[in-house]
Design a protein around this nucleic acid. Sequence first.
DNA 1: TTGAAAGCGCTACCAA
DNA 2: TTGGTAGCGCTTTCAA
Lengths: 347, 347
Amino acid sequence: MVTIKDIAKKLNLGVSTVSMALNGNSKIKEETRTLVLNAARELGYVKNGLAVDLQQGHSKLILLVVEDASRPFFSKVIDFIQRRVAYHNFDLLISTTYLKHDHTAKKYISEHRAAGAIIYTVNIDDDFILQYASPDFPIIVMGREIQGDYVKSLPQFNSKHDKSCKITEYLLQHHFSKIAFVLGSLDTLGSIRRLENYLQSLHRAHLDIDESKLFYAEASTYEAGYEVTKTMIDCIHQGEIDSIIYANDDIAIGGLLCLTDHGIKVPDDISIIGGTNLVQSKFVKPALSTLGSSDESLSYHYAVDYLVASILKQDVSIVEQEYHERFENHKEVIIERETVKLLKKGE
Amino acid sequence: MVTIKDIAKKLNLGVSTVSMALNGNSKIKEETRTLVLNAARELGYVKNGLAVDLQQGHSKLILLVVEDASRPFFSKVIDFIQRRVAYHNFDLLISTTYLKHDHTAKKYISEHRAAGAIIYTVNIDDDFILQYASPDFPIIVMGREIQGDYVKSLPQFNSKHDKSCKITEYLLQHHFSKIAFVLGSLDTLGSIRRLENYLQSLHRAHLDIDESKLFYAEASTYEAGYEVTKTMIDCIHQGEIDSIIYANDDIAIGGLLCLTDHGIKVPDDISIIGGTNLVQSKFVKPALSTLGSSDESLSYHYAVDYLVASILKQDVSIVEQEYHERFENHKEVIIERETVKLLKKGE
DNA sequence: TTGAAAGCGCTACCAA
DNA sequence: TTGGTAGCGCTTTCAA
């Protein structure tokens, strides 16, 4: 391995001179700089980034830990976060905890091999996060709530303002009354919020809450959506259910296929609606009606900005303030496509 | 930041003792070990992984660089590689070069912040790879061919044995004659191989090669597949095309939707076939016929095993030998689903 | 069983 | 403009 020492020796220069030359320090004569650069090329020198970070005492690496890169939902997450991180001139590396492969993620968090992390998976538990979050290593958690120093949970969205989307109301308005709800395996904030909304809305509409209309998918995947929907086929045939709310689009797409496979026509026989707008959702037949956001990048930008500010030991309240308004104005919106049967007035 | 020095000072021990205790070295009395462990906990010590790697002179990190995590195809790639890397007790971190965000990937490669890399994107060019591949940093390239020291291109599969799948033959056998071919934007080995097969097969069948039946998708995404297919609608209506081969499933799925949107029935009006079996492909309607592999994990395992051997400076020919047979036996297989109209004999 | 010291490759301070 | 040197946090001889 070639180091600056080797270059220094070859050129009869000091290591500090070489270092400065390599980094384009203006104190170094242009002439020697060229000399150093040439020697570096000749010797095949490559900078050792580890040594740099160690000496500087900090890195610019943000670690993003997601559940499962093969789940379409996370593709979107990665995309938004990736761009925002680049905007701050930080680096982003991704680790997945699919099938409990948490070794790398845990190692990089517990050994402070990054400047901070964004965690969007349930496979890294609360205790672990609480233990390792520190001023030197702030952590942002998405999709669930954790209370602790140096840990920030996102998004809280409008939980207290109750502006959250009335997906159940929407179905109620369109004269559905036998509404089933399918929860994804991950108890993420979004799913929970939607479930609460479901329960409350039924209650307000003076409809009984029927536990037999609550279903649980094993995971938030197409396959799990397909499987859980299989168990609903009988109820549907017996007319016990006239519509289904899926907590997210991943399971909704699987469910849609299952229904089709069993000869159940969507939306004629039953209406369904998803929960997190995915690119894929408009590519299924019939196109999936679902829930979108008026400002999709919002919470991801907030997460990154907040993390970067924490890493830089800046005042995070400035970030909070900046996003306050955007959060106030944020709305979840129904994306009407083809899986909900809209009755005309009076029909 | 708490370091072993702080622990040593607090306990009136030497740093080396603390280091050894922390690492469970048997030379250290169990008593002092407990002492050290407790002090570490109290002080909130966390190991600095960078310092460890710097001192050891090597890391166990493999960097996987992919084009675009939101492309379903790569979900599969990540999955296979992830598992194999874990099997070797190495760490895997992923970087995406979506929208030319190559900064992180290039930094981690050029500054040797990992032990080696697997590159599956066209956004890191040949020169760059050739420049930084070295005994200290072996690189595996997938999906395209690069010649150079310390760079290994995968998979070559059976290119010379010509066992590669006869997808065109398959269509020909089923009495299609006006076959269009849609190339993905990425000139990956797979697409090229399939295109070559297309050209050769037509030639062997004494059919003219009609350049107006060759189409190019802007990218390998659903959207691009949709767009390119739009430009084919007229030809289809005029009966100039009776079937389409898409180089991969991503564009095929987009294309399928486009056809449906334009009132063209698949497979009644036209037959289509994809190129890389995706989970999603069986979830579209009609389910996409496509190309699968008799041993899907093959090239990914090979890539990882080869890279690990290179990093460990072991003899890679052992790995090569190990996989030789598997490659010999490997076949691409047609997965018959619902998008190709199979005529009965004599029909 | 413990500890002093060297050194991984680099940057930055302070002299020269 | 340059260079000697200290030191980032850690591991690992080699002595004690």
